[in-house]
Amino acid sequence: MSFSISGCPLAGCIIALLLPAAAGVAHDRDDIVRHLQGAYGLTNHSACLRSVPHPASEVGIDPQTGQLLLPAQTIAQTGSGVMRFSRDGRVRFSGRASELDLNGIDAGDVPNIPGLTLTCSGTHTVQQGKLVLLASCTVVAPQIGASFTVPNVEAEGPISDDGSSIELTARAHVQNIQLSLPDGSSLSSERVCTQRWSLVKLP
């Protein structure tokens, strides 16, 4: 533990006391599991391949092999907002997002879906300078009256030494999507993505 208060030399104690408490996690280079506290500005960029929506009784992507079992489409998304970490291990996010349907390239298609609202909640841990995030996210598309939930978002990545920035990437796994339609019905879909989240510490 680099900056242990107990038993430290005087100079080390002074340095430890002067370190910004807001960083919250800056010195976690040991095996102790800790939590962040505070707000971070977040931007993300994703590219996904997702199966076409289907009844819950079907499977679009095999969760074990990753094989596509139904037709799929390619999408790209960006989002931004504020992620708030609590010392009890909770995490919440609220922001907005845009989606681009990369298959929508024929005349008459509308490939861009702007104005999505995005909320997430979940848990986090910090160990050895790395943040691990497990969350459930809901995306609402007001213009089409639909929403979808991704219950198993998993990401991890390094925290800067001073705690001012974090870079996360999604763990490679099949994400499940529950789609709620305006008529009250629901459909399922699965997706595999490359996703990156960049966070900077806010006051």
């Binding site: 807001a22 971070y40 500005g41 977040l42 931007t43 993300n44 960029h45 960006t78 989002g79 931004s80 845009s98 800067s160 001073d162 001012s164 920035s165 960049s198 966070l199 900077v200 510490k201 806010l202 006051p203």
Partner: peptide, 15 residues
């Protein structure tokens, strides 16, 4: 639009 870190070192933006 995006965010600048408290210490001004990092900026993340989305179009």
């Amino acid at each position: 639009e995006g965010f600048i870190s408290e210490n001004g070192v990092a900026v993340n933006l989305n179009q």
